[in-house]
Amino acid sequence: MTSRVQSRGPVMRAFLRIKEDLWLQGVAVSTLTVALAIMGVYLALCFNLYQASSRLLSGPSLTLVLDNRIEPDEAAGLSAQLVRMPQIRGARFVGRDEALERFRGQLGPHANLLDDLRDNPLPNALELVLAPEHEATDELIALLGNQAGVIEVVTSRPWLHRLEAAITSAGDLALALGLLLFLGVILVVSNTVRLSVHVRREQLELMALVGASAGYMRRPFLVEAMLQGVAAALLASLLIWLLFAMLAAPASLPLGLNLEQVVSFPALLPLVLIILAIVAGLLGGFLGVGRTLRQRRLL
């Protein structure tokens, strides 16, 4: 017994406290799990939307609809000719069959709707990526439309511009909302620690009376808050993974919507949540213990 006591550092004292009151730990971890799960869903959605918008913005911004009679080698020639233009960064030929396959993939579990088609209705196309400093001006569109074999020029550039502007302003809002959510998590941790401090107020009073410093009293609570945070982060990650797995399941989605890209589980999310939980545990624990000790005139 005596040898065990003498080596009790803050980590061991934190573990002993956790063991002392498992009910309190359960309450703390479940409260934190909910808070971190909300934060995690928000982060995952932000991450996925950012990825999706990046794909859109870096994707083709002009599509040339080609005559169906054009041969692939003719399309390759046109493609080579176009990429020599300073306004065009890249060009890719998408044949009718590939376009149909792509469409089939986008329909996901409802792809069988296409089985009844007698003919492939989709045209051959060239997807063009513009150089960053160039726009799809009327002159360029007219120039491309005059190329042999080109039936129509389809541009999504104006729409993408609006999307880019919206993403830029939404980014600031998302950051502010994220910080607000994180503040909420810190307050949850802080209140959980205060509950823990309240339960152990007599122990703390006693420690203060025999000359324990604020750090001595605070450290086990910080360790405890961090351990609770890590446990809650792992549980929250599991919950989010299950939620996203359910949402992304094709059978559960109406109208053939494919949300896999928007609700995919980011691999780094558990690590991010653990780091956030540890930071929140440190800040919340520091605030929670300090406030309670000062209120009780122990410091």
């Binding site: 017994m1 006591v5 003498q6 009790r8 006693l206 420690m207 025999v210 000359g211």
Partner: peptide, 10 residues
């Protein structure tokens, strides 16, 4: 023992 050790440990 632990009770008495507290005042030394702190």
């Amino acid at each position: 023992f632990e009770n008495v050790a507290l005042s030394l440990h702190v």
